Computed example of a mutant assay.
Amino acid sequence: MQDPILRKLFLGFIQIHILHHAQKEPFYGSWMIEELQQHGYEISAGTLYPILHNLEKAELVTVEEKLEKGKIRKYYSITTKGITILNKAKEKIKELTFEL
């Protein structure tokens, strides 16, 4: 993506999308990449994982490691703080959508 403003907007949309799914159920990174691709976001692991780390650092998601088929997989879940932020974002999205 060339335009830096559009990139920042899309990164915000991606973060909201991540929090939305983390609220539904824990997910792992490669699943999220596929989910975002279904919505038209071309995102690589090199872009997704720093976003997930930042969400974890901001205490919006937590990570739990699970051993599956001989591999350790990290599952991301939303925190109480994450739910609060997601709900505020949803309110703003509804307000903006109504205005547009």
Rank of each mutant, 00 (worst) to 15 (best):
residue 7 R to S: 13
residue 51 I to S: 01
residue 99 E to Y: 14
residue 84 T to Q: 15
residue 100 L to W: 10
residue 84 T to M: 11
residue 32 M to F: 13
residue 31 W to F: 13
residue 19 L to V: 09
residue 17 H to C: 09
residue 15 Q to L: 03
residue 18 I to E: 02
residue 81 K to F: 08
residue 94 K to I: 06
residue 65 E to D: 12
residue 57 K to H: 06
residue 16 I to Y: 08
residue 70 G to S: 09
residue 74 K to Q: 15
residue 24 K to L: 15
residue 100 L to H: 11
residue 76 Y to D: 03
residue 92 K to F: 11
residue 15 Q to I: 02
residue 15 Q to V: 04
residue 98 F to K: 13
residue 53 H to A: 14
residue 83 I to D: 04
residue 92 K to Y: 12
residue 60 L to T: 02
residue 92 K to V: 08
residue 50 P to F: 06
residue 1 M to P: 11
residue 18 I to S: 02
residue 87 N to H: 14
residue 40 G to N: 05
residue 93 I to W: 06
residue 74 K to L: 13
residue 73 R to L: 14
residue 62 T to P: 01
residue 55 L to F: 05
residue 37 Q to L: 07
residue 39 H to Y: 14
residue 30 S to W: 00
residue 36 L to F: 00
residue 56 E to S: 09
residue 13 F to S: 09
residue 7 R to Q: 09
residue 29 G to V: 00
residue 24 K to N: 07
residue 41 Y to K: 01
residue 77 S to G: 05
residue 23 Q to H: 13
residue 99 E to V: 02
residue 42 E to R: 11
residue 76 Y to M: 06
residue 11 L to P: 01
residue 43 I to N: 05
residue 7 R to L: 14
residue 9 L to F: 11
residue 54 N to H: 12
residue 10 F to I: 08
residue 65 E to I: 07
residue 25 E to M: 12
residue 29 G to R: 06
residue 5 I to T: 10
residue 50 P to C: 00
residue 9 L to W: 09
residue 11 L to H: 06
residue 34 E to Q: 14
residue 1 M to V: 12
residue 73 R to Q: 08
residue 29 G to W: 00
residue 11 L to Y: 11
residue 5 I to P: 01
residue 9 L to P: 00
residue 81 K to Y: 04
residue 79 T to S: 07
residue 43 I to H: 01
residue 83 I to P: 00
residue 9 L to A: 10
residue 84 T to W: 03
residue 71 K to Q: 12
residue 34 E to V: 00
residue 54 N to G: 10
residue 78 I to E: 01
residue 59 E to N: 13
residue 55 L to Q: 05
residue 29 G to Y: 02
residue 91 E to H: 14
residue 59 E to Q: 15
residue 80 T to K: 14
residue 30 S to G: 00
residue 48 L to W: 06
residue 26 P to N: 05
residue 1 M to F: 07
residue 23 Q to S: 14
residue 72 I to A: 03
residue 45 A to G: 08
residue 79 T to E: 07
residue 9 L to D: 08
residue 75 Y to V: 09
residue 27 F to T: 01
residue 60 L to N: 00
residue 42 E to F: 10
residue 70 G to N: 09
residue 17 H to P: 00
residue 35 E to H: 05
residue 28 Y to C: 12
residue 34 E to P: 00
residue 44 S to Q: 10
residue 88 K to L: 13
residue 14 I to V: 15
